[in-house]
């Protein structure tokens, strides 16, 4: 296999790892939704075994652990592959950061069980999950042909401040996901999540608007930004539906499957939204930088961080 073939295979493998991570995020959301976080009281084993009877909440909690284990193995293999075949040192280092993140995430998961869901740890577990997803997605991007094409600046780069806006939208989305985690674990009320949804939604919408109005129709970044807009619309709809279903089923003792599924879909779509926004940010930066138009925060469009 030539180096291009290896690179393509590595890229596809990184996508597979990112997909498995998204599945893991959904499994985690199901654990919270079905209140099964402590259905298995021990860790790292489950009821002292590797495979307890998968009944009730044990199915969700142990299922989450099994998927997490799979993602851990996939990530380890990805990092080994990167260190073996990837020529760029910074990509190797990024892979190592992802591996450290997945190990830290496993430890946080264990702490949530052993210390019976301490709220800061549980919220950190949720935030690190999103961070890890972003890291793996970044690895998938930087090993992709699109990343190389962006460096060739074949297309007209976006305005220098476009990537600043995209970065702000990505940061806002990350904060919004953290607020969502705080809401789910009852550290905060609904207010901050609602208010910040407006801020994050506005920024993401602005990114989409600028991409659509300023970039060429065939531009890949424009297409990606359109996807971003579509995911944003879906996410808003799921957020409203999640609130409505919760309101309707309020007072019912046991977790309602409809609420659990919608809330889990809301969480997973939020991760997709964050990931897509990060891809837009990184690609925009790559193209702006390739064109030598990276603006400094001092406002000089010709200066670069270099």
């Amino acid at each position: 296999m030539n180096s291009s073939g290896v690179s393509r295979a590595l890229h596809h493998y990184a996508i597979l790892t990112a997909g498995a991570t998204l599945l893991l995020l959904m499994a985690g959301a199901l654990v919270v939704g079905y209140e099964a976080g402590l259905a298995v009281p021990d860790w790292p084993l489950s009821y002292g075994t590797w495979m307890p009877p998968l009944v009730g909440g044990i199915l969700y909690e142990h299922g989450h652990r099994m998927i997490a284990g799979t993602v851990g193995v996939l990530t380890t293999a990805l990092v080994i592959w990167l260190w073996w075949k990837e020529p760029r040192r910074w990509v190797k280092a990024l892979g190592l950061v992802a591996w450290v993140a997945v190990v830290a995430q496993a430890i946080l998961g264990g702490l949530t069980v052993l210390y019976r869901l301490p709220v800061p740890v549980v919220i950190a577990h949720g935030c690190l999950a999103q961070t890890f997803f972003c890291l793996v997605l970044s690895l998938a991007l930087v090993t992709s042909p699109a990343w190389e094409r962006a460096a060739q600046a074949a297309e007209e780069p976006p305005a220098p401040d476009f990537w600043h806006l995209a970065a702000a939208a990505t940061a806002a989305l990350f904060i919004q996901l953290a607020l969502g985690a705080a809401l789910r674990h009852k550290a905060l009320g609904l207010g901050p999540h609602w208010v910040w949804a407006g801020v994050a939604g506005f920024l993401v919408g602005w990114v989409c608007y600028r991409a659509v109005t300023e970039l060429a129709v065939q531009d890949g970044l424009r297409k990606l930004a359109r996807w971003l807009g579509g995911i944003l619309a879906l996410q808003v709809a799921l957020g409203v539906a999640s609130y409505a279903f919760r309101a309707v089923t309020q007072g019912i003792h046991e977790p309602q499957t409809s609420v659990v599924l919608i809330t889990s879909a809301h969480l997973a779509t939020g991760a997709l939204l964050l990931g897509c926004s990060l891809l837009v940010t990184l690609l925009a930066y790559r193209r702006v930088a390739a064109a030598g138009k990276v603006a400094s925060f001092a406002g000089d469009p010709q200066r670069t961080f270099a």
Partner: peptide
């Protein structure tokens, strides 16, 4: 971002 969201009360 992670550090920013992991804090809070004990």
């Amino acid at each position: 971002g992670l550090l920013g969201c992991g804090g809070g009360q004990p």
